[in-house]
Nucleic acid binder design. Structure first.
Length: 608
RNA sequence: GGGGCUGUAGCUCAGCUUGGUUAGAGUGCCGCACUGUCACUGCGGAGGUCGCGGGUUCGAGCCCCGUCAGCCCCGCCA
């Protein structure tokens, strides 16, 4: 608490912002320090805490810059002002006149950034009385936050908390820095429509019924994808937008139905140009948060990432890489291992140095995580000295273990099977291993690019060929000949930016050849009529003289979350939605009256 | 759509394992006292549909079923 406070508010209070001065106040509370001693000041703020000693009243007055102590003392405060100070309720807004004074030496034992000074109050008026707050803004040390449901219902109070104010302040600075960085690189900030056309591909659209056109709907954009491509065709060269995007899908801690992307597109570029722009923006934002990071970022192919980390967004701050133990498997391995190999699977696993100390309970936890992801179980063995022990000795056999070798103190964790099972399983296992006490990251920041994603994948449900990304992503030029003969061999000019195991965003080089775009659509089984209906305006655009172009979208909320140390997107969004996509504070969504539905040509059908 | 966790005073929590007095604590709130506090202190007080509905039982905050809400995860998120 005190730590966060000091960290976020001392910095701000070091500089007096002259623009803070208004007709009603001269400074922000948190800006006052020794430099203002002797000055007459006027302040406005919220009563954070009040300490009423009878003859003396102290008030901690809070605003967005921090807290300063008000001292009401008969030596400088009249009896009627004293009475008002003593009656000022918690979280009420007061206007104060006074003089900045040095606090008595013995009375500076405080965590406030403004610890040396206080305001000797000569006038105080409650201008915004507050009812008793439903949730506390000022908390005791160690006091838990109120339940998130209450925080969301009482959002104005929650937003007053210094931590949340610090997060939103940082978010503002990140946005400004990104904006300036891109603008300096010649990118133009251009807005695109919020009422757009449904794109039945991908995520579910939020639909908006048209009043004017019966039975027709707008969609809220899942991203400005097609618009930004058309801006390239229109010759705008370099575009960006801090764009709101909407997806009607189920939520997670790091997923909101409406979210913000730093959306970028540029013409006459290759993949590395776009990556260079994105790196500059990311480095600038990290710098804004006080973190020094270096570009260019390391490149990893999708295939490598899946092979060594089991995921396309590896956390490179830690070791515990996945290995292929298949070549070491000897006849003494258990039948189920041989069966898995016979079916074309592999035996993959992790040799975790020093993890032989893991308790049985811990290993059970790893096994449970493995089973949750579809693995039959988790083979494990620990090596002490030269000896292996554990269930894995039987499962994969001593001969196999001997060939795997390992070192004293290693914990071996392995899973036989298809990559589709072993990769996610071992990724989950690895993630748990990195969280063991005593495991330290090799660096604070590990950025990388994941490149060479496959263009197509098989739909696990239907077996049909589906696009991994959106259908405007260009294949590698050298893979185009294989589009028909060996589609799964084709790599996409698609790239993800990954940071400490988090996907920060993704982008691609787009298809600009209308013929190739048509071909891709038809490979996906979309007929000419449907192409026309859905994407006609894009194809027409491409046919009008399209420059080679590509772009990227940075998940801005996620960046703000990571850089502010928040554990949820909801803590970097002023008015977020719950996991059921409800807004508890304002109370959306709500049922609408029959006549409103009627005007929109809609009729409700009651389910069940 | 599926799985898990949580729901008791304004707030944070205990009570639930093993059903049985008047459901407690801290804090906040209200009142009184208090001239250097800073989580002020001291004294006194008010404050509860134990999320909601049903069931079992002589008796349910506690057991069972259902439901709602919040959170976490899987599916989903081109």
């Amino acid at each position: 608490m005190g730590y966060v406070w000091a960290m976020t508010h001392v910095t701000d209070s070091m500089v007096v912002d002259p623009s803070a001065s208004t007709a009603m106040r001269t400074h922000r509370c948190g800006e006052l320090g020794r430099e203002q001693v002797g000055e007459a000041v006027r302040l406005g703020g919220w009563v954070h805490r009040r300490r009423d000693l009878g003859g003396l009243v102290f008030i901690d007055l809070r605003d967005r810059a921090g807290i300063v102590q008000l001292s009401c003392d008969p030596r400088w405060t009249s009896p009627d002002v004293m009475a008002r100070a003593s009656a000022a309720g918690t979280e009420s807004v007061v206007l104060v006149k006074g003089t900045v004074g040095l606090r008595p030496e013995v009375a500076r034992d405080t965590t406030l950034a403004t610890r040396d000074v206080e305001v000797h109050v000569t006038d105080l008026r409650v201008v915004g009385p507050a009812v008793t707050p439903a949730i506390p803004v000022a908390r005791k040390e160690g006091e838990e936050l109120p339940a998130e449901e209450l925080r969301l219902k009482n959002r104005v109070l929650d937003l007053r908390r210094p931590e949340l104010q610090a997060s939103l302040l940082l978010r503002h600075r990140l946005a400004q820095r990104a904006r300036r960085t891109l603008s300096d690189l010649g990118f133009l900030e251009i807005e695109t429509p919020i009422l757009t056309k449904p794109t039945p591909e991908g995520a579910r659209d939020y639909l908006v019924p048209s009043r004017v056109h019966e039975g027709e709907f707008y969609a809220l954009p899942q991203s400005p994808q097609i618009y930004k491509q058309l801006l390239m065709v229109a010759g705008y060269d370099r575009y960006f937008q801090i764009a709101r995007c909407f997806r009607d899908e189920d939520l997670r801690a790091d997923r909101q139905p409406e979210f913000t992307q730093i959306d970028i597109e540029a013409s006459f570029v290759a993949q590395e140009d776009v990556q260079g722009f994105v790196e500059q923006v990311l480095v600038a934002m990290w710098d804004e948060a006080g973190e020094s990071v270096a570009a260019p970022f390391r490149h990893l192919s999708y295939r490598d990432a899946m092979e060594r980390w089991g995921i396309d967004k590896p956390d490179l701050r830690f070791g515990f890489e996945i290995q292929d133990f298949t070549p070491f498997v000897q006849p003494d391995a258990a039948p189920f291992v041989h069966e898995a190999l016979a079916k074309g699977g592999r035996l993959r696993g992790i040799l975790a140095p020093g993890a032989a100390s893991a308790s049985r309970k811990e290993i059970d936890g790893l096994t449970a995580a493995a089973k949750e992801l579809g693995a039959g179980g988790l083979i494990w063995a620990r090596r002490t000295g030269a000896a292996w022990e554990g269930q894995g000795v039987k499962a994969i056999g001593l001969d196999t273990l001997t060939r795997i070798r390992g070192a004293d103190g290693d914990l071996l964790l392995a899973v036989p099977g298809a990559d589709g099972v072993t990769s996610p399983t071992l990724h989950a296992v690895r993630t748990l291993l990195t969280r063991r006490p005593g495991v330290t990251p090799s660096a604070a920041h590990a950025f990388c690019w994941i490149v060479d994603f496959p263009l197509f994948e098989k739909d696990p449900a239907t077996g049909e060929r589906i696009f991994v990304h959106h259908p405007f992503t260009s294949p590698h030029v050298e893979d185009i000949p294989f589009l028909d003969s060996d589609p799964f061999r084709c790599r996409a000019l698609h790239y993800d930016a990954v940071y400490n195991g988090n996907e920060l965003g993704s982008g691609s080089i787009r298809i600009t050849d209308p013929a190739l775009q048509q071909k891709i659509f038809s490979l996906l089984g979309i007929g000419p009529e449907e192409i026309r209906r859905r994407f006609g305006f894009l194809l027409d655009g491409l046919a009008a003289g399209a420059p080679p172009h590509g772009g990227f979208a940075i998940g801005f909320d996620r960046v703000a979350m990571l850089l502010s140390g928040a554990s949820s997107l909801r803590d970097v969004i002023a008015f977020p939605k719950t996991t059921a996509a409800r807004a508890l504070f304002e109370g959306a969504p709500i049922p609408v009256a029959e006549r409103e539905l009627h005007a929109l040509h809609l009729q409700l059908r009651r389910e069940k």
